[in-house]
Amino acid sequence: MKPRTAALLGLAALLAGAGAWMWHGRDLDRRMVMADPDVLPADLFAHAVPLGRETFAAHCASCHGADGKGDSARGVPSLVDIDRLYGAGTVGDIEQIIAHGIRAANGKSRAFAIMPAYATARPSPTEAIPPLTPGDISDVIDYLLKTGNPESARRGATIFGDRGGCFDCHGADAKGDPAVGVPDLTDAIWLSGDGSRDALYNTIARGSAGMCPAWLGTLDARALRATAVYVHSLSHPATPPLPSR
């Protein structure tokens, strides 16, 4: 074979190879986007994670940290623990949060409740929730942190379960409600601050309503799904396989 012939054939093979590679990539993208996010096969999972890591670094790390551990001084949650504010923490749940955000400016964003500011005349802008006194707040903190004397903790329990209305959102057992994004107050994981008495006072007296932006539009379906898979993998290092329900 003449060198020229060989060169031509080589070029053709290269083109065909590149085409096949591109086709394969696109096919993986297509299947990744079309699959049920909660039961992603291993090859799609492996395809998604590096892509998601890239998107995360570009768009999410500024708030959630490069390692995904959040920033409790600004009320940004860690995505590395399995404690979820919203939903069951499946890839599908996470994807919906990323797409529409939390208390973000769009009709589909998750915005069911805010933490009232109990040391103000009108703790909630939307609900008729009465304010508390400094003593009430101190009692309720004693109840939550199991500090103070039995008397104050008992008073705190009454405020929690009755006049303060805390039970309505956080549940009678204070374990929160992932259906509406209300945090568990019985675990050691805190969204805002370090779980100290002062930090709890800061939230209960002055309220809290964290915002996660909506990414649908900024990110396409492929990047959204890949990021959701990556975020899920942060708290589930052993995955795939995913059927987590």
């Binding site: 500024s62 708030c63 400016a105 769009n106 009709g107 909506a214 990414w215 900024t218």
Partner: peptide, 12 residues
């Protein structure tokens, strides 16, 4: 209104 505001929300 929301769309205008949303654009600014991704910025930290």
């Amino acid at each position: 209104e929301q769309q205008i505001v949303a654009e600014s929300q991704t910025k930290q």
